[in-house]
Structures are given as structure tokens and as C-alpha cells.
Nucleic acid binder design. Sequence first.
DNA 1: AGCGGGATTTTCT
DNA 2: GAAAATCCCGCTT
Length: 205
Amino acid sequence: MDQSSSRYSTKTASSNTLAFLNGSARDIAPQLLGYIFERTLHNGTILRGKIVETEAYDQTDTASHSYRGVTPRTEIMFGPSGHLYVYFTYGMHYCCNVVTGPTGEGAAILIRALEPLIGQEDMELRRSRHGIELTNGPAKLCQALAIDSSLNGQDLHNSPLRLIVPAKRDKVEIVQTTRIGISTAKDVRWRFYYRNNSYVSKMRG
DNA sequence: AGCGGGATTTTCT
DNA sequence: GAAAATCCCGCTT
């Protein structure tokens, strides 16, 4: 494996390049910033967005779906890392996570915001919005990229939704703060985002 | 700019 | 039966 070519070319993640997901969600969540989601629709349309906001959830965490153990909903979180966990909430919204940790541990990273790179026009049709409103929230980005329960459990190495290693690391400051929309563990600072990126959800200022 | 309510269904107590 | 890792709209300031 040629180190320089993997560092400077944008290519589909091999099983090797996503091996870093087999660790703690807390540590991986900031590392996932800058990675790229590539969605291939049934008609062949390619959509891409860069991850700019993440939140970690693990089994020790009262706010995590996995806290109370394996259920029909959470079994994907307990499966192998590098797969996608999609859940449905509030009767109308999907949110998506990247599963982390070894098989048997229930952990995942919620993707809260993307910066669109390719396919903005297609996202606009699905969202009926434009600009930052395409992908500045966990359910918004799922609607923009047509992510629903049919993708739950898919392998991010090779599926209609793939995780791509960035060509080069962004030189952007990462902010660490508390998570959004939860009623317990409000003080746990497991939310990470790129400072000053306009696609981050609930930006103030 | 900020608050309040409605939508709508899966999941777990 | 209540809450939910949310979003959107309308009203008030």
C-alpha cells in the first residue's frame, strides 16, 4: 500500500482504511470530521457531502439507544464497525450513525451535519430548501441524501452509501461541546464540529 | 431572534 | 401511554 497515494487521492475506503472505526466512539467522533459520504441513488446519481458535525454515543451513556442493551432497533449498534445505523424518530425523521467499536459493544457516531460537495441540485429537490438548509441537521441530511431504513445495517465500505477518506486533512479548528436534543447526560461533551463552518446545526451568531 | 405547537410512529415501560 | 439523538411554521418581540 503506497502511503502517499492514499494520502493525496480521494478513493473509496477499503476495509483497511476504515479499520480506525473499530475503537471508542468518543475518540473517533472528532476524527470522522472531514470524511465524505458518497450516496449512489438508484438512477445512478452521485451525491457527496463532507462530515462537519458529529456526536458520540456508547453503551455506558444514558442518552444512547444502546444503553439498555440489544433490542430490535439497536442490534446494528452492537454489530461490526463501519456499518450504518439508521433510526426513525418523531414519527417522520430518519437520522444516521456510523457504527464504531468491536462487535458486541453498542456504540455509534451520529452524523449531525454535512457540507454538500456534489449533487446540490438533487438535494434541493428532495429538501425543498437550498443553501445551508440542505444538510445542517441530522434529519435534514438524511432527507437530502435519501437515507432511510432501507440502508440500516449497510456496510459503508461498499454499498449505496460509502464513507470516503478525505484527500487531505482540513486545517480547521474542531470545537468540542455538549450534545443536542437529549434529556439525560446533558453535561457530556461528546459533540464535535468544525468551527465557523456554516453547515453546522444550530449555529449561534 | 426567539418561543410554542403540531406532525406522526416506533420503541420501550 | 409517554417520550423520542427533529424539523417547520406562525406568532410575538
